[in-house]
Amino acid sequence: MTMRWRPGPIFIILAIAAFIPLLDQVLPAKMQLSEAIRGVFLYAILALGLNVVTGYAGLLNLGIAAFMAIGAYTFGILTCEIYPFQLGFWPAIALTIPIGALAGFILGAPTLGLRGDYLAIVTLGFGEIVQDVLKNLDVVTKGTQGINPLPAPNFGGGEWTAEDEYKWYYLFFVLLVLTVLAIRNLERSRLGRAWFSIREDEIASRSMGIRVERIKMIAFATAAAIAAFAGGLSASVLSSTGEPSNYDFQISILALCIVIVGGIGSIAGVLVGALVMVGLNSIVLVKATAWMAAHGIGGQGNVLLSPNNWKYLIFGLALILAVRLKPNGLLPPRIERAHK
């Protein structure tokens, strides 16, 4: 039996993404896309992580930003010149993955037995606590200053700077593709099917011999590892961990919006969701602010005239409307969910 290969939605989306820098060559300077799309890649990686735990295993995690913070600070502490380790970019970014998984394990081990909504609250609280701890342990983490400067990769002629826009673009692109491939393989493995199974019915899965706690644990740790990886990347491209509140509840909710709006449990959905939500967040709002400033509208006086002040409303409505009108998202997964 032969099967003709047809390009799926994931392939099409990624193939288009590969050509954005070429498009930038012909677009006027004001409409350059690649830097914003790089942000989309970063959040797509984060949301793919969240998708493993929330989409596949059905465990609502409201503290994914905390693992991103853990990755960013791990990367910072391993590489910055004020600490004894001083690793380079590649070993440090590789180490964010096991350390993120370990953090996921530490939070997950005692709490995964909880019912879904309690687990959601615990992860939310964890997200708040990680910020507090990073802010309060300023001896180690430099408090609100963040850790900097941090190294960038250095192949192809010296260490990269912010000028090397396209190198960063393709680095993020390649890492996103690798993440997608890894998750796609997981999705189709024995482990992935076990995740779907406990999402649909935990008790039935248990009686089929699935070790529910262990499978949940792996989902949790995988998500944490991917989020930490995204955190390390973000710290590297910014050359700073930034302050702890850069990894607040808003980021966790942005990731959740991406997954819910795009299509919970669907890789292609997450990619589209990341484009829509991050596009709104860091392209439309930012451009609107710049445009209004250029035309003398807004400023400090009127709260309604600052596009940034609409963020919570947009995220909130996105969640409410997506759940209500398109519960399976823009690009739902191919595998039908059991009817509930």
Binding site: V303, G316, L319, V323, R324
Partner: peptide, 30 residues
């Protein structure tokens, strides 16, 4: 409208409401 949906959707909707209300508070402060 979500009474028959999964608990997860209901919770996500509640988070959405929380954000909408928070934004209304921000506007109110102005």
């Amino acid at each position: 409208a979500l009474r028959k949906s999964s608990k997860l959707s209901l919770l996500v909707s509640a988070i959405g409401c929380s954000f909408v209300c928070m934004n209304l508070g921000l506007f109110w402060g102005g």
